[in-house]
Every structure is written in C-alpha cells, then in structure tokens.
Write a protein that binds this DNA or RNA. Structure first.
Length: 640
RNA sequence: GCUCACUUAGCUCAGCAGGUAGAGCACCUCCUUGGUAAGGAGGAGGUCACCGGUUCAAGUCCGGUAGUGAGCUCCA
C-alpha cells in the first residue's frame, strides 16, 4: 500500500499509510497536549472529522474546540443527539427533517402529529444527557446514493429522500450514533461524551425548506457549549435580554403604547417617549443643518398615479395599504418619501450649480406588514424614517457617500453605537439602469468605504433593483446586531420621473440620486436604544433628568423653589412631594431610571443647598441649585 | 399570512374536577413626618378580549373573530 504525505498546515509532514484516519494522522503529527483540543480538520475546502480516512496527500488544518468552527461542529452534533433523543422518546412515527447549527445554537425540524410541549423539554434533555453519558461514537460511512435512497425510503424518512433526490454525487455520507442514523455531510465530534452543556431553548413552527407552501414542521431550538460555564453565561444573556425587552421597559417607563383599538403595528408615543423622541429629532436636525442638509416636510398620501410613475405599484404594491377614493381619484398612503422629494426637485428647473442638493425629512411612512411580522417598535406598520435624498453629479457621488458615512457613524456614535458591521450589496440579477452606471456607482461606494477605512463585506447580488447600497448593522451592548442605516444609489427614479438639470454644456442631464436613512426608523431605533441602555438613557436624551424628593412636609416650600428654579434653568425636572418615606420615593425614581435625584431635607433647606443622588446609588457632595443646573447643562451637551 | 401558545382589575399574575371572581403593586381616603430601593389601615376598581355554541349552570368545555408572544417568511 502506498504511503501518503500528510502534514499539518505550517508544520512538518510525515509519510503515513494510505487509508489512515485523520485521528491517526494527528496523533502522528501533533503533540498529545495540543491533540486534545482538536475536533476535526480542514483539508482544502472540506472539513473532515477525526474518523475520516485519507487517500491522498493532504495538508490538514486542525479545527480546535475553542474556535467558531469547533463550536459549530459541536452544535451540529448536538442537533443529531437531540434528534436521536426525540426519536427514542416519541417513537419511529416521527420524521426528521434537517438539523443544522445556527449562530447561537442549533435546531432540528421534526414532523410529528402531536405538538411538542414545554413539558417534553425535560424528558428530551434528560434523554440527551443519557446519550451523552453513553459516549456513543459518531461513525461516518459512505453509502451509494441509490442505496441511501432505498435505506431512508424504507425507514419512511421522506424528507431525507427528498434531500437525496437533489444530490447528484455517487455516494453520500451517513452518520450513526447508537441506533440513530442520519444523512449528513459532517463533520461531527468523535463521540457524544463531548456534549457536556446542552439546553433546549424553545419550540416553534417552521416550514419545510422555509417555503410557506410546504408543510409546517415543529422546530426544536437548542444550544450547546463545550464548557458548562459558557452555557450559563449564554442563558444569563438571554435573561438579560428579556429584562431589557423594549416592550416591557416601554410599558414600565411609560414610553410608548400600542392600542388594540387603534390597530396593530401603530405606535402611540406617551409623553416620556415623545419627549425622548423630540430630543433625538432636535439633535438629528441640528446635525443635518450643520452638514449642509435642508429640511423638508411632505404629506402622508399621494395620488395613486404618483406610485405608478415611481414604480412602487410594480415593485412594492404588496407592502402598501389599499388605495382610498377621494373625489373619484385614487390616493394611497406613502410607503416611502422619495417621490415627494422628487416633487420638490421638480418644482423648478435645476442647475448643476445647485448640486449637491441634500434634502432630509423625518418622514412618516406606512407599510403593510403581515400580522405575524409585527413586533413592538421593531417591526410596525407606521413609522418615521430619518430619510434624506441627495441629488448630485456623477463625479460628486463618491464624496457624497463619504460624507454620508461620516455623518452616519458620527450620529451612531453619539447614541452609543461604535460597533457595527458594514455590507456592500452589488448588482442583482434583475436591475434597472446600465451596467456601466452600476459599475461606477458600486465603485464609488467601495472607494468611499475604503477612504473611510471601514471593513466591509460584499453581498454579491443583494443590491436593490434600482441601485447598489451600503447597509450598516449596529451592535448593541449585548452584541446583538440591528439593521438601521442604509445608503442606496438610485438609477430608477431619476429615469422614471425624468429628472434633469442644466449642465455646464447648457444641455439637460440626469442627476444621480442617493437615498439614505441613518437611524432607519425612529420607532425601531428607539426600541434599540431602550434595549441598549436598558431604559437608563444618557442625560441628554433622558426625558426626565432629575427628580426633587423632599423628606418631610417641613421642606415643601424649599422643594417647590428648587423644582421651579431647575425648571427655569432648563432642566427636565419632576418632583415628588407626596407624604411618603424617602426610601419609597427613591425606589420609584430609581425604577424610573431617572439620572439624578435631588434630596431635600432640613439640612438642605437651612443651607440652601441640594444633595444629589445618582442612578448608581452614589451621592455627590452638596451643592447649590445653580451649580447643579450648570452640571446638568454641561453633561447634556450632545455628542461630547 | 401560516403553525403553536397565550388573552382574568391600570400593571404582574392566582383561579387546580364547569356552580356567576382573588392576590400583590398602582390609584383614592385616613393615620404616620420618616434621610438614600416598598411605614400602617381602609376604600374604590372586573359584562374574566369579543361573538356564538354545549350545559340546569361556562373565566373554566367547543367553534369563530381580534390582539399578543415564539418561530417561518419579510424587512426600516
């Protein structure tokens, strides 16, 4: 038998007999200490688990436990173990579908008549533990395609057969642990004993292959880690996220409400939420004026004909609310602001000398969302975009994009987001405009990103039909990412509305149009802010900055005076002069996440000072009312 | 929209085998005037989401509608 030349990437090679396993190769090439961490290996673009045999010269790149791939392998294996547990517990009538790893765990889809209940979780978890304790090896075997089809067909595993029908290889790999056999590409952990930290998370419906025309399967979500401590940390994070849920905090802090009678997906901003929003909007407007934008206001409905011209009736009608008849003319609620801005563009003849035109609007739009998609502030039917449209010359595009990104990141940073992922989406299959324009615009986006020194991922073919775009997904304090900002070049609307400007040559040309939203939707962004700050907003956007608390009625007069002085000084202040104990008042103010509590007792009254308690429980030294107002003023400067 | 679950006082929830509703907090009144996360007593508040059915009797069982949640799908 011929020997193979096997090596570890970046290390020395050895001659090993053909047909040796990856495990044997690693044993020969890696120190025993290192070896323990290795789960599998990458060879070219394939991932091999330890049981695979080698039949050619190979360079192996070990995949270790504490790598993202390592975790994926564990979780993928965990999904198999869970499937085994489910089949063993609930019988062979259950059909198994697919069970991949996801970004924070894994799932497995089952076809079962009876619904799984949370009570089943314990039984499944216990069974998984049992299987893990049995240290069953995961064994891989190759099976000719036809044989595999017959095998799974005999078992009644119709979903597996369906998957096999689409495979064109001669043979497929089958994984077996105990009596459980699954069609699977692998790789897997070597034995179930490595599954030491496992948790079922939830159950939900999911269509077979994500297609709503297919049957609904039952999806069991779980997660797994190598280290039980990591699992504990993850579960703690889930709890933390629950505590920060903007729907819960929105109710507790009286920020917004949704009223069934008003309608689902329609947000009612309560006074505290409205005030926070006003502060956000003021900041946003100031920042835009400073960056050369002009503010617009436009209406909420327009004639249906406008939406025909814009192409929304061709491409977006499913997301729009039904038309309404007004004086025998059909009108429709706006899902976007762009056609209105174009209306303003067309209000007079434009010259290249005006460019770049930068128009912004906090424009409220209405989009039909399926009921199942609605979620708190994050997904609604009426929302306000921090929209802007830029009309410019082709040669101005790159700089405009650069400026937008600059402003974008600056504003995000002010709100406490400095961690984000940037995506560049390029030309899709179906598109308008010329290849040449697409290419140039994409290049301009790319150059702007690079000039800004941003790392980005390219999403090939993911652009909108009318132009390439940049999306920025921000990461909140828990590391969850949210799509907010989007910057889109548009070749479509200038064409459809026959936009023009007089160029230097005296002739009419078509301007480049850019759409962009930085916060995306005020509603969603506010939701993200609530969760990011857990409701404890920074001083500049806290609806209530300070609350004055008296200790007894003896200080009522002075308390009123402090309250009024602060209000006159521009502090957003409340007072609590109820006949309650200080502890009680502090507790309430604390739960309301008010940044500063002003304590007024006899001491303060006599010395005309105030004692300041912070949200974190600490106290500041006594100070005068004007000093406190000055402190608030100083700390409230946005973006400093 | 689809699947599953849920919907009881302003809020968070009890109400287990069908016999016409409870708690805590909040609210109101009174007592208490107390320095850094809940002082005490009393009171008011619900056609048990809505509509229909089964039953002598329905918050409780069945069906439908609406809303909410977890997903699927979609996206700001």
């Amino acid at each position: 038998m011929a020997d193979l030349q096997i090596s570890i990437a970046g290390g020395e090679g050895k001659s090993l007999p053909e047909g040796c396993t990856v495990a044997e190769a690693i044993k020969a090439l890696v120190s025993s200490k290192e070896r323990k961490r290795i789960l599998a290996a990458r060879a070219g673009d394939r991932m091999l688990d330890l049981s695979e045999t080698l039949h050619a010269d190979t360079v192996l790149e070990p995949i270790v436990k504490d790598s993202p791939e390592g975790l994926d392998i564990l979780r993928h294996s965990a999904s198999h173990v869970m499937a085994q547990a489910v089949v063993e517990l609930f019988g062979p009538d259950i059909k198994v579908a697919i069970g991949p790893a996801t970004s924070d765990g894994f799932y497995y889809d089952f076809d079962r008549k009876e619904a799984f209940t949370p009570d089943d979780f314990e039984a499944i978890e216990a069974k998984v533990k049992e299987i893990a304790a049995a240290n069953l090896p995961f064994s891989r075997e190759m099976m000719p395609l036809s044989e595999a089809k017959k095998y799974f067909a005999d078992k009644g595993e119709k979903y597996k057969v369906e998957l096999l029908d689409e495979i064109t290889d001669d043979a497929v790999s089958i994984y077996r642990q105990g009596d459980f056999v699954d069609l699977c590409r692998g790789p897997h952990i070597s034995h179930t004993g490595l599954l030491r930290a496992f948790k079922l998370i939830r159950i939900a419906g999911a269509y077979w292959r994500g297609d709503e025309n297919n049957v609904m399967l039952q999806r069991l979500y779980g997660t797994a880690f190598f280290d039980p401590k990591e699992l504990k940390k993850y579960l703690f994070q889930l709890e933390e996220a629950k505590k920060r849920d903007h729907r819960k905090l929105g109710k507790e802090l009286e920020l917004f409400t949704i009223n069934e009678q008003v309608g689902p997906g329609l947000i009612l901003w309560q006074p505290k939420g409205a005030l926070a929003r006003k502060l956000i909007e003021d900041y946003w407007k100031d920042e835009h004026y400073r960056n050369g934008y002009e503010l617009l206001y436009t209406p909420h409905i327009a004639k249906r004909d406008l939406w025909a011209t814009s192409g929304h009736l061709d491409f977006y009608v499913e997301d729009m609310f039904s038309p309404m008849e007004i004086d025998d003319v059909s009108y429709q609620l706006k899902p976007m602001n762009c056609p209105f801005h174009i209306g303003i563009y067309k209000s007079k003849k434009r010259s290249y000398r005006e460019f770049p035109i930068r128009w912004c609007e906090l424009g409220t739009v209405y989009r039909y969302e399926r009921t199942g998609a609605l979620q708190g502030l994050m997904r609604v039917r009426g929302f306000t975009q921090d929209d802007a449209h830029i009309f410019c010359l082709p040669e101005q595009l790159e700089e405009e994009i650069f400026n937008i990104i600059d402003l974008n990141l600056h504003i995000l940073k002010t709100f406490g987001f400095s961690d984000y992922d940037v995506y560049l989406s390029t030309q899709p299959e179906k598109f308008v405009g010329t290849e040449d324009n697409w290419q140039k615009a994409t290049e301009a986006l790319k150059l702007a990103l690079e000039k800004k020194g941003l790392d980005y991922q390219v999403d090939p073919g993911e652009g909108v039909f009318y132009g390439p775009k940049i999306d920025i997904k921000i990461k909140d304090v828990l590391g969850r990412s949210w799509q907010c900002s989007t910057i889109q070049v548009d070749f479509n609307l200038p064409e459809r509305f026959e936009l023009g400007y007089t160029a230097e040559d005296g002739k009419d040309h078509q301007p480049i149009m850019v759409h962009r939203a930085l916060m995306g939707s005020l509603e969603r962004f506010f939701g993200v802010l609530i969760e990011h700050y857990a409701g404890a907003f920074p001083l500049w956007m806290a609806p209530v900055q300070a609350k004055v608390l008296n200790i007894t009625d003896a200080q009522l007069d002075y308390t009123e005076k402090v309250f009024n002085d602060l209000r006159v000084a521009g502090v957003r202040v409340e007072k609590d002069t109820r006949n309650e104990k200080l502890n009680y008042k502090i507790r309430e103010a604390q739960l309301a996440k008010i940044p500063y509590m002003i304590i007024i007792g006899d001491k303060e009254k006599d010395t005309e000072m105030v004692t300041v308690r912070l949200r974190n429980g600490k106290n500041l030294d006594p100070m005068s009312v004007s000093d406190f107002a000055g402190l608030i003023r100083k700390e409230s400067i946005v973006g400093e």
